[in-house]
Simulated scan of single mutants.
Amino acid sequence: MNHHSRFRAYHTVRGSAGHLLLWVSATFAMVLGVAGVVVPAAAADTVIDAVPAGNVPIEVAITPNGSFAYVTNSLDDSVSVIDTATNVEIDTLTVGDGPSGVAITPNGSFAYVTNLLDDSVSVIDTATNSEVGTITVGSLPFGVAITPNGSFAYVTNALGGSVSVIDTATNSEVKTVAVEAEPQGVAITPNGKYAYVTNRSSNSISVIDTATHTMIDTIRVGNEPRAVTVIPDGKRAYITNAGDDSVSVVDTRTDAVIDTIAVGNEPRAVTIIPSGKRAYITNAGDDSVSVIDTATDAVIDTIAVGNEPRGAAIIPDGKRAYITNSSADTVSVIAIDQCIGALCIDFASLTDPVWNAAGVFS
């Protein structure tokens, strides 16, 4: 079995707010009508673009300023750089063998890419879009997350049952933390104190204390947990379980599962908008994205995207989501807000009990 075959085998509106929204939409439509202009409206949570990427795109990360998306392309050993203003691929750079995970430092200066098939991490200078370093880690490095202060990168080693801790100042591995079987996803809490790691073959989450780089807890979740993210207030973690088509919700204060949500077929990635009000889940088995209302932990929408969606990331202003479609070699762009021409309406702001008028228009 060659490396590419091996890679494929391994990766198998209410109340007054509602009236206000209608008034805003109607008024804007009336103005356009008087002007003789017909502008179609794009509904919220609608795919507005599909950007060509490389061969089998897996994960995506957005720069802190929201300007660029970095996409790992597993079968041509490259990273695509997409300009989020134009949704056009503007650069492609070569990395290691079988790139999988990608994370960008908080200052936006570097991207860290895990290379699944050569047990390394590529360090990319985002100013020049060039590889400036390679770090040897454990076997089959899969996911990567960076602490909020930018000091450490945590890399899951799927075959080795471990997590490599990289000092980003020296770009060297300074610690290896033993976890359970086949770690894949990793996320850091907003306060930087803990790393949550999904263990696919153990149906568990390992909790790592980032001060000591030691595992301090294990949480049992659903079948084949793949990805994990922590809500912006730090109180809950959302975990995709590909083996039973669900999302586990963990209270990070008690490290206990408090809810299980049924989603689409074979959920992979999970990302949450900056307000923390909605989570977006890629379902690789039915080519869709499930949208979860985090106040009720209920699925409120399902969005059709490209073939076999894997990775997901949301730009910092919370207005668009980028979804990698592994079997289509594209990245779907989802408009999270409703847009009428250049006018975008933020539903989350309008439906708050106390809404912020500045959040209506953008």
Rank of each mutant, 00 (worst) to 15 (best):
V31S: 08
V31D: 13
L32W: 09
L32Q: 15
G33R: 14
G33Y: 12
A35W: 12
A35I: 01
G36F: 09
G36E: 10
G36P: 06
G36S: 07
V37P: 00
V37Y: 03
V39C: 09
A41P: 02
A41H: 00
A42G: 13
A42T: 15
A43W: 02
D45C: 01
D49R: 13
A50P: 00
V51T: 07
V51H: 01
G54V: 08
N55S: 15
N55L: 14
N55F: 12
V56T: 11
V56N: 04
V56S: 11
I62W: 03
T63I: 05
P64Q: 12
P64T: 07
S67Y: 05
A69C: 08
Y70M: 14
Y70V: 05
Y70A: 14
V71P: 04
V71N: 06
T72A: 12
N73E: 13
N73G: 06
N73Y: 02
D76H: 06
D77M: 05
D77T: 11
S78N: 07
S78K: 03
V79I: 14
V79E: 06
S80E: 02
V81W: 01
I82C: 02
I82K: 05
D83A: 09
T84F: 01
N87K: 00
E89V: 15
E89P: 07
I90D: 02
T92V: 15
G96V: 03
D97P: 00
D97Q: 13
G98P: 07
P99K: 10
P99T: 06
S100R: 11
G101M: 06
G101Q: 03
V102K: 03
V102T: 10
V102I: 15
A103F: 08
A103W: 08
I104T: 05
T105Q: 02
P106K: 05
N107Q: 13
G108A: 08
S109G: 13
F110K: 10
A111W: 07
A111V: 10
Y112V: 04
V113I: 15
T114P: 04
T114H: 07
N115F: 06
L116A: 13
L116Q: 12
L117S: 14
L117D: 10
L117W: 07
D118L: 04
D119S: 14
S120M: 07
V121D: 09
V123P: 09
I124N: 06
D125I: 06
D125L: 07
A127T: 14
T128S: 15
S130V: 13
V132T: 15
G133A: 15
T134D: 04
I135K: 10
T136M: 08
T136W: 00
G138I: 11
G138E: 04
S139D: 14
L140M: 12
P141I: 09
P141N: 09
F142M: 10
F142K: 11
G143A: 11
G143R: 10
V144H: 03
I146D: 02
I146V: 15
I146R: 10
I146G: 02
T147Q: 05
G150K: 10
G150I: 06
F152C: 00
